[in-house]
Simulated assay, not measured.
Amino acid sequence: MRHALLFYCRAGFENDCRQEWEARSGQTGGWESEPGFALFKPGKGGEADPNPPEPKELIFARQTLHVLADVQLGEKDRLTPILDALKSSKISAFNGVWLEHPDSDAGKPLSGFTRRFTDIVEKALNERNLIDPKARFRLHLFFPSMTRALVCSVDPEVAASPWLMGIPRVRMPSEAPSRSTLKLSEAFMTLVPDADQLLKSGMTGVDLGAAPGGWTFQLVARGLKVFAVDNGPMKGDMAIHPHVKHMREDGFKYKPQHPVDWLVCDMVEQPARIAQLIAKWLASGTARHAVFNLKLPMKKRWAEIERCFELIDQTMNAAHVRYALTAKHLYHDREEVTCYLTRLKAPRR
């Protein structure tokens, strides 16, 4: 299993993980997938990168791990085969251990087992001096079933999601008018570096397709004054909040009187049309930062993402604007990906 890679993903998107990895890495090989994960085994012509790219660079993978061993487990003794596999590893110690399972219907029954088994594994590793808080790598034990464990490692400082199973825990605010608010909350946690510094009280924002106000809520909660653009009604506090101005206009035609700090958009529309719209806002300087969703087709999702990113690149380059673009298939996303686009400062001459 040397140089194999394990990708966690949403169930049903395993093939998208494969297409993205092969497109970005240029590597091909054998693949094994079940709902919630994809396992890549490089072909004879090449090896997978032993230092996987940062999670933010891969859209469909929640976590990317280097596989050390694929272990078959006994029904009575699951610990010994794992410890034997670690003896063969070139890694002398780990800074911690996470036990995980697929985020799928088949994987849910394993959650209780991984919680109970964690204390047993940690005790055994400590007894063998395999846990050192100063060690570079973290140990991941991924259980596709009760009889199999993928023993994996990752450098938490370089290439790891900081959340168990790659899933951030986001609490649903009781005041929010819709559950879509969780997507923008997760996007700020996952995609926006230094979000607390970039989202400050007194800033201005525009929410295209705002109704009923789930995304507007996230901006207002951070102190922004928001122009909520939608022909539909706002609900709850977002309909009466003093920092929200409801503009009953078409999101594709609306333009603010002055540039704004933030643009967010969760409109149900063709992804290419959304990509062009957002890029025009930032290329013209009408907004500095944007978080938006691309609603993907059922087939050829990766091809559609590449098409949208190319449209954004063409628009930004035509305006001679430096930019950064990241995207992620968030836990709270469904048939969509969430993107963060920001203007960068021009380099000094």
Results as ranks from 00 to 15, higher is better:
residue 156 P to R: 03
residue 222 R to M: 07
residue 2 R to A: 15
residue 100 E to H: 08
residue 165 M to I: 09
residue 231 N to A: 09
residue 240 I to N: 11
residue 342 T to D: 11
residue 248 R to D: 08
residue 256 P to L: 03
residue 311 L to D: 12
residue 320 H to S: 14
residue 93 A to R: 11
residue 207 D to P: 02
residue 136 R to H: 12
residue 281 W to Y: 11
residue 217 F to G: 04
residue 257 Q to F: 12
residue 317 N to F: 06
residue 130 L to E: 00
residue 210 A to P: 00
residue 182 L to A: 08
residue 94 F to M: 05
residue 261 D to R: 03
residue 202 G to P: 02
residue 337 V to R: 02
residue 290 A to P: 14
residue 299 K to F: 13
residue 200 K to G: 06
residue 191 L to N: 07
residue 199 L to H: 07
residue 161 S to N: 10
residue 196 D to I: 08
residue 57 E to Y: 12
residue 298 M to R: 09
residue 224 L to W: 05
residue 29 G to W: 01
residue 235 K to G: 01
residue 279 A to Y: 06
residue 335 E to G: 08
residue 95 N to G: 14
residue 349 R to C: 11
residue 316 M to V: 12
residue 330 L to W: 09
residue 261 D to A: 03
residue 227 F to P: 00
residue 307 R to T: 03
residue 202 G to N: 06
residue 151 V to P: 06
residue 213 G to K: 03
residue 111 S to V: 14
residue 134 K to L: 13
residue 79 L to K: 03
residue 45 G to H: 11
residue 308 C to N: 04
residue 48 A to V: 10
residue 329 H to Q: 10
residue 193 P to N: 03
residue 346 A to M: 13
residue 242 P to D: 06
residue 125 L to M: 01
residue 206 V to W: 04
residue 222 R to Y: 02
residue 179 R to I: 07
residue 340 Y to W: 11
residue 260 V to G: 00
residue 184 L to S: 01
residue 220 V to L: 00
residue 145 S to L: 06
residue 21 W to M: 10
residue 29 G to Y: 04
residue 8 Y to C: 11
residue 121 V to M: 14
residue 133 P to Y: 03
residue 252 F to M: 07
residue 178 S to E: 02
residue 9 C to D: 07
residue 319 A to V: 05
residue 341 L to E: 05
residue 25 S to M: 03
residue 294 L to Q: 05
residue 159 A to N: 15
residue 38 A to N: 00
residue 140 H to F: 13
residue 346 A to H: 13
residue 109 P to A: 08
residue 121 V to E: 08
residue 27 Q to I: 13
residue 209 G to S: 02
